[in-house]
């Protein structure tokens, strides 16, 4: 599919009138079901990009079109997950995952009558990410990796068209991280949605994404766009291949050039 799902047309943003621009002249086209990764040095406006995409912030200049409509106010078709899992400590894992269904229409109004059906759906996701048996535990009884799995379930349970991930694996150990890469890869392959992944891990970006954008340091600009042509499905083995290393190296050079400038 090549129809545009997200279009950024020369978008600028400053958070308040006296501040400098957080991002400058960003023009990006994202196809439906495309997996996009945004990498860059810290403080480069990656998270700003996410806020713009989801309509949590209006741009200062330029236009953003998502799903054929100009963005004005928060979109209701997104799921989000952050570096901190942000689970609600008074809810069980299952209830945490069900939260979006209590808020997003049309699920909200059907919630009472279809509760069982929704629970089945949440349980299916919970099993997919390997949390079966933990659904009735509270967040504090889960390890960091498990909490993050639950957080991803919560981001996907309402079948959003757009998944926004802000360094979701940043706080995890290397093995858990690679495991969750595969979980995310499988979820995306099974039931496609558009993904914007913000990360500073170049291997993560290369392994998961169709297209990687490199942002410069503040004020953030897109300095490079790299299509990852590695064949899918990608196995974790691919990360040790020469082609993979070459791409990572190439991306690294872009970052290096930014840091020196």
């Amino acid at each position: 599919m090549s129809n545009k799902f997200i279009e950024f047309d020369r978008v600028w943003l400053k958070y308040n009138p006296t501040a400098d621009f957080a991002i400058e002249e960003v023009t990006v086209d994202i196809r439906e079901h495309e997996f996009v990764a945004i990498v860059g040095p810290s403080g480069c406006g990656k998270s700003t990009f996410m806020k713009l995409c989801t309509g949590l912030r209006p741009p200062s200049k330029g236009t953003i079109i998502v799903d054929g409509r100009q963005v004005a106010g928060p979109l209701k078709i997104t799921g989000m997950a952050f570096q901190a899992p942000n689970l609600l400590p008074w809810r069980t894992t299952l209830d945490n995952v069900l939260l979006p269904l209590e808020i997003v229409e049309p699920y909200k109004s059907q919630y009472r009558e279809k509760r069982e059906q929704f629970e089945d759906r949440a349980m299916k996701l919970i099993r997919t990410v390997g949390l079966a048996g933990w659904e009735n535990k509270f967040p504090w009884e889960l390890s960091g990796g498990m909490q993050q799995r639950a957080s991803i379930c919560r981001a996907l349970v309402h079948e959003p068209k757009l998944l926004m991930l802000d360094e979701p694996f940043g706080a995890l150990d290397a093995f858990t991280r690679e495991e969750l890469w595969c979980v995310l890869r499988d979820l995306h392959a099974e039931n496609p949605f558009t993904v914007v992944l913000v990360t500073h891990d170049l291997r993560e970006a290369t392994f998961l994404a169709d297209t990687v954008y490199v942002m410069s340091k503040r004020p953030g600009r897109i300095v490079a766009r790299r299509e990852i042509d590695l064949p899918r499905p990608r196995d974790i083995e691919v990360t040790y291949s020469e082609a993979f290393s070459k791409i990572v190296h190439e991306l690294r050079e872009h970052i290096g050039a930014i840091r020196k400038s």
Partner: peptide, 23 residues
Amino acid sequence: LEPELEDVLRALGASRVEILRKV
């Protein structure tokens, strides 16, 4: 309230009253 948590809910289209009630 953690701003990220508020963002999660706002990105779902939750109203202020809903954010207050649920979280």
